[in-house]
């Protein structure tokens, strides 16, 4: 792993209306590392991912991907930049009208001038890598949850990207398949020497695959560090998150009953 930075986020602030979603977020992703952005529901991790992908514009701050500011570069250069990143969405986002093979072929068809046979060889190679060989003709609706994640990964890596983004790669899968997807991400990083950004709320998965973990809570970064550093971090909110401690519900049964019945009881 080198110290060269492939993603640099500086002082990112985002508002939805009057609500502040991200509060002065800064982070970098180094070449060849797997950075896991971890946080609970509503922590702002999906918003942060959308900023890294250039799908949202920040209120202030900037996002540099491979040295280019994703919010200010001209459209043509943005299209070229997008060819250097791959994204596996949480639900797969496979195109439902295309077969698995056609889904994986799509980036090649749109961005290269290769002949059909070469494209198919490249796509089938990636299907082999994610252990989906032989499922070319299936439609997305015919795939299991794990197969959808694999197909999404195959489509994300078909252009040999320099950065791979995975949104909740093991969410909604049984533990065995989730562990297989984690192993696949590790193998892909090693085989293709790319940087990987994983957004997840799954602690086991995060600890297994991360080189560094960025803990996000209520729109701010609580800590960024290696797995042992995060595990031993003194911050109470981090420890609550790691130990799955929930805030106790402060509820007075009588007061609740009074509110529920409008004081008629």
């Amino acid at each position: 792993m080198s110290t060269e930075s492939v993603i640099a986020v500086e002082s990112l602030v985002t508002h939805y209306g009057s609500r502040q979603i991200l509060k002065n977020v800064s982070l970098e992703v180094r070449a060849g590392e797997i950075l896991v952005i971890m946080g609970g529901s509503g922590s702002g991790k999906s918003t942060l991912l959308n900023h890294l992908l250039g799908l949202l514009r920040p209120t202030s701050g900037n996002v540099h991907i491979l040295g280019q500011d994703i919010n200010t570069i001209p459209d043509i250069e943005l299209t070229l930049l997008r060819q250097k990143i791959g994204v596996a969405f949480q639900g797969g986002a496979l195109f439902s009208s295309l077969s698995v093979l056609e889904n994986i072929l799509l980036p090649l068809r749109e961005h290269t001038r290769l002949d059909r046979m070469t494209m198919e060889i490249m796509a089938r190679l990636k299907m082999e890598v994610v252990n989906l060989a032989g499922f070319d003709a299936l439609m997305p609706a015919e795939l299991s949850g794990g197969m959808i994640k694999r197909a999404a990964l195959a489509r994300a890596i078909v252009m040999d990207p320099r950065i791979l983004f995975c949104d909740e790669p093991s969410a909604g899968l049984d533990p065995v398949v989730a562990a297989q997807i984690d192993d696949l991400i590790l193998d892909l990083r090693d085989a293709m020497a790319m940087s990987v950004v994983v957004v997840t709320h799954e602690l086991d998965s995060a600890f297994k695959i991360a080189d560094r973990i960025c803990v996000l809570d209520q729109g701010e970064i609580l800590a960024i560090g290696s797995v042992p550093e995060i595990r031993a971090h003194p911050n109470e909110r981090i420890q609550n998150l790691l130990n799955r401690r929930v805030k106790p519900v402060d509820l007075d049964p009588e007061e609740y009953l009074r509110r529920l019945t409008g004081g008629r009881l």
């Binding site: 250039g54 994204v87 949480q90 496979l94």
Partner: peptide, 12 residues
């Protein structure tokens, strides 16, 4: 189903 987002991030 985020297919439109998928197109965008693919540069399509």
């Amino acid at each position: 189903s985020q297919e439109v987002d998928a197109l965008t991030v693919m540069g399509i």
